[in-house]
Design a protein around this nucleic acid. Structure first.
Lengths: 221, 221
DNA sequence: TAGGAAGCTACTCGCCTGTATAGCCGGAGA
DNA sequence: TCTCCGGCTATACAGGCGAGTAGCTTCCTA
């Protein structure tokens, strides 16, 4: 039940070892390696989970659950960045790396993590707009999806470029990333990029000409 | 020598088949599958390239070369997006998918592609600033690295979320992506995100307090 | 105290991978 | 015409993988 890290039953130890292995070295990590990390035999994976896919699913569910818990436990505030105070603990860093790897790999789990983060960001964004801190968008959801996709994508790419992610003191890696991107982020968010609004105006005119009047545009699949 | 697709020598056919396989299904595609796609035997890979790693290196070099060629051949203009008119041809789409997959996978090849695109974008950005189209940044290179990382990252994530990339008519996939992100991009680039400059001002003050005066800040590794 | 289930391990199987070796075949040069 | 040589194939090999089977220990319960 709890998220302690010591003498647990084999199933929990195996699951936690798999989460660490997956986060550290990717989802192709072999069952034998995972079992060795957990200090148990390889056959125990099959005994408890049946298949590797099922073990992976259990890891995904556990990570998502712990992520939710950590996020709601520390509702102090998240100024402008997702993953704000999360990587302070080793546990939080582990979760972030696992999630980023899931997104990078694609598949159902990555999609679920993305949708979860988009929903969070949408709440946050609406509140920020209501409080007058953020300019409104002509399509709030599209903007949030776009911003999350960009932010997470930048993290994914940045970490993919590095030689390897140190699972411990992941906070240092995160700090380095923010140190490199904080100034450009604030510049872009505060001052924009274009000196004139020609491009936007033209595109809005183009949109008005092709679809219904831009009151409440909605995605069309 | 040329990039035709029909009766080539086995080495070229093998290399081209590997590029398509890697782009379509990832770099774990087996040598036998690649050879089958090329219509040759699996042993020929070893005969011509020695190891799979060497085949991969040949593919990387070929893709980078073709990308350079395609980019310089069509120097008409690239309004605000990298990969502007590139995916119009099947060849161009193939290259983009291959590059995105390389970046997503990480490693030396992905780093090289990234640095190449950053250098391109830096040229373009300096020119745009000089022409008064784009506001100057306090650190041009940091901004460009950040923007490229975000743009490529968004593409990587977006394509990772999709079930599979259709190698043919990749232009349609690209169009769909731009259709979803064009409005948020133009809004953000034109109007920014924050209503006030508090965050930026505070961060600049913080920077001024920790380092040398912010005249020409430089990255510190 | 006997029984039985649960937790766990040792061993095995078939498959697929990259790599290695031996040899076939056709065309160019002497 | 003989010969050699490069392109190419067929087959083999060792290793790692996920999955399957059988059996051991331990502890709880009837």
């Amino acid at each position: 039940m709890s998220a302690a890290h010591d003498d647990l039953t084999g199933r929990a130890r195996l699951r936690d070892a798999a989460i660490e292995s997956f986060a550290a070295h990717g989802f192709d990590e072999s069952l034998r390696t995972i079992a060795a990390r957990a200090g148990v035999s390889a056959g125990l994976v099959r005994h408890h989970f049946g298949t590797k896919e099922a073990l992976r699913a259990a890891c995904d569910a556990t990570v998502l659950g712990r992520y939710r818990t950590l996020k709601t436990d520390s509702m102090d505030a998240a100024p402008q960045q997702l993953f704000a105070q999360l990587p302070s603990s080793r546990e939080g860093g582990l979760l972030i790396v696992y999630i980023l790897r899931s997104v990078r790999e694609g598949g159902a789990a990555g999609r679920e993590f993305m949708e979860h983060m988009i929903a969070e960001a949408l709440d946050f964004s609406r509140d920020a707009v209501a409080r007058g801190l953020v300019v409104p968008s002509r399509n709030e959801e599209a903007r949030v999806r776009f911003l999350v996709q960009q932010s997470i994508g930048a993290l994914v790419v940045s970490f993919a470029m590095g030689p390897e992610l140190p699972l411990d003191d992941f906070g240092a890696v995160m700090d380095r990333f923010y140190a490199q991107s904080m100034l450009p982020t604030l510049e872009l968010y505060t001052e924009g990029l274009f000196t004139r609004s020609d491009y936007l105006d033209e595109y809005l005119a183009y949109l008005a000409g092709t679809t219904n009047p831009p009151a409440g545009p909605r995605e069309k699949t």
